[in-house]
Design a protein around this nucleic acid. Structure first.
Length: 567
RNA sequence: GCGCCCGUAGCUCAGUCAGGAUAGAGCGUUGGCCUCCGGAGCCAAAGGUCACAGGUUCGAGUCCUGUUGGGCGCGCCA
């Protein structure tokens, strides 16, 4: 609809330019009016062009109106207002066509072609496989999944990927943690390191190994802890333990424990996300990467025994280490290899969804891609702020290492997937989010998700009262009252919302829209009865609410929330 | 100290990217609405120096500069 109006103005402006009344045209911006007395749409072209045309805005507006098509069936009239806005008033037919459009296109209504079939990869969550997902990861999951749906709706080919950090020191700490718990189960008593993984899930993995293997990996505590660096430096201490673990167990046994821990936790994460309605096209293992440092060679140098990447040549604020003086690759080196891999898979667009605490890493990853000859503009890093969890007014503390955190699973079980998904995406992602468990759980009017779902269920309920549903030939021009008119407008906004939300990577816009639509419906429902004796009007209203229900369902699906028939 | 994000109603937040007409919503508060398709609903009222100060212009919550308050990041950690 907006595009349609925009085209009318473009034609008029082109004509004005051809007649040398204005020196140049502009890409016109059409806006929806806030106030119904200003019509349906407004155009500010006269205000913008006034200066170059050397003409007062209102006078120029008159000229523009002269060249606009007044016979278009969608147009009731044009009006000059205020400093020089041109207000556009639409005919009732223009809006009633929306209903037909929705009922014909069904779940396709609102889709557009702005993505033009381009491929886009979205990598999100990618939590380390060292423990269960917690509520902090949930936001990235809900946001990433909703964004993927949005981009799909505007014709991108979307590839969703989870990057598994299954190499590196943290994984060794994990394996060692499991082994230490195993030793305890086997009857050893020991001082479990404070910086090892404490959670109960470590016990579970150790127990299953102990059940299967018995005591074959048992070693005396005295031997295990003999001559290790003192716990005063806990990092050195645990590194020593990792080495000792590998020594005593040997490669193959160590690998079994390592792999079991990795498999159990990864599967747990996968299942968790699946139950949260988030599924991936690919799970990408860090361990399958080959390093690409040689390809960066001309931009590296040695200093203090380490290998550095000269990222300052590419806009980073300082140079970064790729290989430590002990010969180990840094995480950054893996990140470069992974991102190079992404670029070489030839996605048109690459989206990373990262926690806001990683914002300092954007510049260096882009720098590395530029150094490798890639167009870093293809990479878009979206940052998601933390969620702070509340139970009423009580702020819940989160500490990962100590194992004191609310898991995503617990959240799901407590508030339900629908409410959780909705709460996560209803705020702009770069905004800090206060997540109140009590509010999300409350099945009352304090909770916006139920308000929207209720509108959908209410419509289902109306249709359940009908024996035969036949409103296809309805005369939609009977829908004249202000509530019906308001619904036309809101329904016609949906495609614009989808486009804007997708272009800005902002699913929350859709959440706000759905609330608006639900509200317009509830207002209408309360003011007018649908199942009435006047058969024609009844049919028209049935068409209207069928269209509303369709749009609600389309939008909720994108957000990842169910559209229930009954509640 | 440097960089990024944020500051809008009592509370939680839209609106800022793309400047536009009288700054919006939910919750909470106050007062109304069930003979009626689902009251998990509807209607109405009160509530604002858009953190502050300058600047840009026909016009600034929106753009620019500075100040201030809060969050995060500035490792050969992950």
């Amino acid at each position: 609809m907006k595009q349609y109006i925009s085209n009318l103005f473009t034609q008029a402006l082109t004509e004005l330019k051809n007649q040398d009344i204005i020196p140049e045209t502009i890409s016109v911006s059409i806006e929806r009016t806030r106030d119904k007395s200003h019509g349906d749409f407004a155009c500010n072209a006269a205000l913008i062009l006034a200066k170059t045309a050397a003409m007062p805005p209102r006078k120029l507006a008159e000229k523009i109106i002269q060249y606009l098509d007044h016979n278009d069936p969608a147009i009731k009239k044009f009006e000059i207002a205020g400093p020089g806005f041109i207000n556009v008033f639409l005919t009732p037919q223009a809006y009633s066509n929306i209903i037909k459009n929705i009922l014909e296109n069904k779940d396709k209504y609102g889709q557009s072609n702005i993505g033009a079939g381009q491929s886009v990869m979205i990598e999100f969550v990618s939590a380390n496989p060292t423990g269960p997902l917690h509520v902090g990861h949930g936001r990235g999951a809900a946001y990433g999944a909703a964004l993927a749906n949005l981009l799909t709706a505007v014709s991108y080919k979307v590839h969703k990927e989870y990057y598994i950090n299954d190499a590196g020191r943290q994984m060794d700490i994990l394996a060692t943690s499991v082994w230490l718990r195993y030793l305890e189960l086997a009857g050893e008593s020991l001082n479990f390191p404070a910086n090892a993984y404490q959670g109960d899930y470590i016990w579970d993995i150790a127990a299953s190994l102990h059940r299967e293997q018995g005591d074959i990996w048992r070693h005396n505590t005295n031997v295990v802890f003999d001559n290790l660096p003192d716990v005063a430096d806990k990092e050195l201490h645990i590194d020593g333990l990792i080495q000792r673990c590998q020594q005593l167990l040997g490669d193959s046994a160590y690998k079994i424990i390592f792999q079991r821990a990795l498999d159990v936790i990864t599967e747990n994460i996968r299942l968790d996300l699946e139950q949260f309605g988030v599924v991936y096209d690919q799970w990408f293992s860090e361990s399958t990467l080959t390093n690409c440092i040689d390809r960066l060679a001309e931009h590296t140098y040695k200093k203090d025994g380490a290998l550095w990447f000269k990222s300052t040549s590419f806009g980073d604020e300082k140079d970064r280490v790729l290989v430590r003086d002990n010969g180990q690759f840094t995480y950054f080196a893996s990140d470069i290899a992974y991102h190079l891999n992404k670029f070489e898979r030839n996605f048109d667009k690459i989206i990373n969804i990262w926690g806001a605490d990683h914002h300092g890493y954007v510049a260096r990853v882009k720098a590395a891609m530029t150094a490798l000859g890639m167009d870093a503009e293809r990479l878009k890093v979206l940052l998601v702020q933390f969620a702070t969890l509340y139970r009423g007014t009580e702020r819940l503390q989160m500490s990962t290492r100590s194992g004191e955190f609310v898991t995503l699973r617990e959240l799901r079980q407590e508030v339900g997937t629908d409410a959780a998904r909705f709460f996560y995406i209803q705020r702009k992602s770069e905004q800090h989010l206060n997540f109140d468990l009590e509010l999300a759980k409350s099945q009352s009017n304090e909770n916006p998700i139920y308000y929207i779902q209720y509108a959908h269920a209410r419509i289902s309920s109306v249709f359940r009262k009908l024996d035969n549903i036949n409103h296809e030939k309805a005369n939609l021009e009977l829908l004249k009252n202000k509530h019906e008119q308001a619904l036309f407008v809101t329904l016609s906004r949906y495609p614009e919302i989808i486009e804007n939300a997708a272009a800005a990577y902002e699913p929350h816009q859709l959440a706000y829209y759905l609330r608006d639509l639900a509200q317009d419906f509830h207002t209408f429902y309360d003011a007018h009865k649908i199942l009435i004796d006047d058969q024609d009007l009844c049919n028209a209203r049935l068409s209207l609410i069928a269209a509303i229900q369709q749009v609600l369902r389309n939008g909720l699906t994108i957000i990842g929330v169910t559209a229930p028939e009954v509640m």
